[in-house]
Amino acid sequence: MKLTKHLMIPLIATGIVLSLIFGVEYNCQGEEMFPEYYGSPFVFKQKSLGSSMEYFYSVSGLILNITIWSILITLINKLFLKLIKKTGENKTLKILYKGIVILLIGFAILNIVIDSAMTGSGFQKGLNYWYMDLDKEAKDWGMKCDGKWIMLKK
């Protein structure tokens, strides 16, 4: 049972990262066309300039974001379990807890399926790659990038 729980937390974290429930959108201005970048909080996703329905991903950005969100979800989970224990194993809270977990797992799976369908092909710099260096790319192209906090951006 514990192994399942430890697999569920990164799964839910992946869904939160990919959904951009909370994230940062980077728009860059300059003389060139430049893709939009997304972070949660680290940059992990780049919108393709060739198609509005295609995105490229950074492996390291995804791993870092999933790790951060997994830690936050673990802390929230511990707090919720303490609350359930403090209320004398309240049946209503237990049902609510299980319902929320099931909804989050469904949400995560949906986001993973959608984003996998929108993933651009290829694995090299400028496409899906190990890392995305937004600052270096912007500097190389003479762009100025500003990030703004976003919620529920798909």
Results as ranks from 00 to 15, higher is better:
24 V>G: 04
109 I>T: 10
138 A>R: 05
136 K>N: 11
132 M>C: 09
20 L>G: 09
104 L>M: 12
120 G>S: 07
149 W>D: 02
66 I>A: 05
40 S>M: 11
116 S>K: 03
23 G>F: 06
118 M>H: 14
30 G>C: 13
87 T>R: 08
75 L>S: 02
140 D>L: 11
60 S>D: 15
80 F>P: 01
91 K>S: 14
46 Q>E: 15
38 Y>K: 05
48 S>W: 12
32 E>R: 13
25 E>C: 02
129 Y>F: 15
82 K>D: 07
143 M>Q: 14
43 V>A: 06
13 A>W: 04
47 K>T: 01
89 E>Y: 13
86 K>M: 11
12 I>M: 14
8 M>D: 14
131 Y>Q: 12
4 T>P: 01
122 G>A: 10
24 V>K: 14
42 F>D: 06
132 M>F: 15
38 Y>M: 08
48 S>P: 11
140 D>G: 03
22 F>M: 06
102 I>K: 06
139 K>E: 15
65 N>W: 06
11 L>A: 02
150 I>N: 01
153 K>M: 03
32 E>N: 12
11 L>M: 06
70 S>V: 02
30 G>T: 13
12 I>L: 07
71 I>N: 00
32 E>S: 12
66 I>N: 04
109 I>E: 05
56 F>P: 03
36 E>H: 10
133 D>F: 10
23 G>V: 06
41 P>C: 01
63 I>K: 09
25 E>F: 01
12 I>W: 04
80 F>H: 09
85 K>Y: 01
123 F>H: 08
139 K>Q: 15
68 I>L: 15
122 G>N: 11
116 S>H: 07
43 V>G: 03
11 L>I: 03
74 T>E: 08
21 I>M: 08
138 A>T: 06
12 I>P: 06
151 M>G: 05
